[in-house]
Design a binder for these strands. Structure first.
Length: 161
DNA sequence: GCCAACGTTGGC
DNA sequence: GCCAACGTTGGC
């Protein structure tokens, strides 16, 4: 199993929204590096759900990959802001995965707390100016955040059959 | 709202 | 292939 970070703006779609809908296609990613990470995701992988452009910015919960990468339908929708006229159905340029909520943290683990964790020192997430919306996390990084959220491996095992 | 940092675009 | 201009991201 691998670990990831997914960024989202809570004003647009926060972790509470994911809990509400139960499952969500992670569409609209239009950055090649982020897309390549999406394509590496497998069902069951766990994602730290990061709230950006928020007060405070930080990790709000854990999501699970429910479906691996498949073509992002918005790239073919001329009405969508994510429409890509250079993409074609026989060779789709952009991908998405489905995610589902696993656990909401009791409180957001803020960015300034992440920065105090040795596992997160000088990472792409905590470094200033990084704009990647999908990025990998190490096991150590993942568990450090869970620990900071007050959750244990046992808490997570209870939720992951 | 500000602004630094970055990715993308397009002219050459 | 370079690089300036531009648009976007994202912390504050």
């Amino acid at each position: 199993m691998r670990f990831w970070v997914l960024k989202s703006e809570p004003d647009v779609f926060g972790f509470a929204d994911l809990v509400r809908v139960g499952r969500e296609p992670w569409n609209g990613v239009r950055n090649y590096q982020a897309r390549n990470f999406l394509r590496e995701m497998r069902p069951g992988d766990l994602c730290l759900f990061y709230h950006s452009n928020a007060r405070p910015a930080g990790v709000a919960g854990v999501a699970r990959v429910a479906a691996g990468a498949y073509p992002d339908d918005l790239q073919f929708d001329a009405q969508s802001r994510y429409f890509d006229p250079k993409s074609s159905p026989d060779n789709p340029r952009w991908s998405m995965v489905d995610v589902e909520p696993l656990v909401a943290f009791p409180g957001v683990v803020p960015l300034d707390v992440l920065r105090t964790l040795p596992e997160w020192a000088d990472s792409a997430l905590t470094r200033k100016g990084t704009r990647l919306s999908v990025l990998p996390a190490t096991d150590e990084q993942f568990w450090a955040v869970l620990d900071a959220a007050g959750l244990s491996l046992e808490d997570l095992n209870r939720l992951t059959p």
